[in-house]
């Protein structure tokens, strides 16, 4: 059995890479993918703790996180399509005002 620490370190690495992508990328779709990556890293930590503590509460939370992430992806991609139609660009540096 692999110690819980390794899973937590992997989770931290994935979360850090997600933050890096969120900060450095210019494409709005890639930034959205970075958010999904961070959610996945948090899920991994939840499952690791759930296994370490021998309780299934963490896995229930993972289920809820997945539901929220799927709904969020649907809503967010709708907003992305709308802004891309209005501004004819996917670069976040062109999307700095709420109003056109």
């Amino acid at each position: 059995m692999v110690p819980t620490n390794y899973y937590l370190i992997l989770s931290a690495i994935l979360f850090g890479l997600g933050v890096l992508a969120f900060v450095f990328k210019r494409n709005i779709i890639t930034i959205f993918m970075a958010i999904e990556l961070m959610l996945n890293a948090v899920n991994l930590a939840f499952v690791a703790f759930s296994q370490a503590l021998g309780k299934s509460d963490g896995e229930v939370f993972v289920l809820f996180v997945i539901v929220v992430a799927a709904a969020e992806a649907a809503v967010g991609l709708g907003i992305i399509i709308l802004t891309a139609r209005n501004r004819r660009s996917l670069n976040v540096e062109n999307v700095d005002l709420l109003k056109l």
């Binding site: 690495i13 994935l14 890479l17 890096l20 992508a21 990328k25 890639t30 993918m33 990556l37």
Partner: peptide
């Protein structure tokens, strides 16, 4: 997994 994340960036 880490390889995929690095490649994503």
């Amino acid at each position: 997994a880490v390889l995929g994340a690095v490649s994503l960036i």
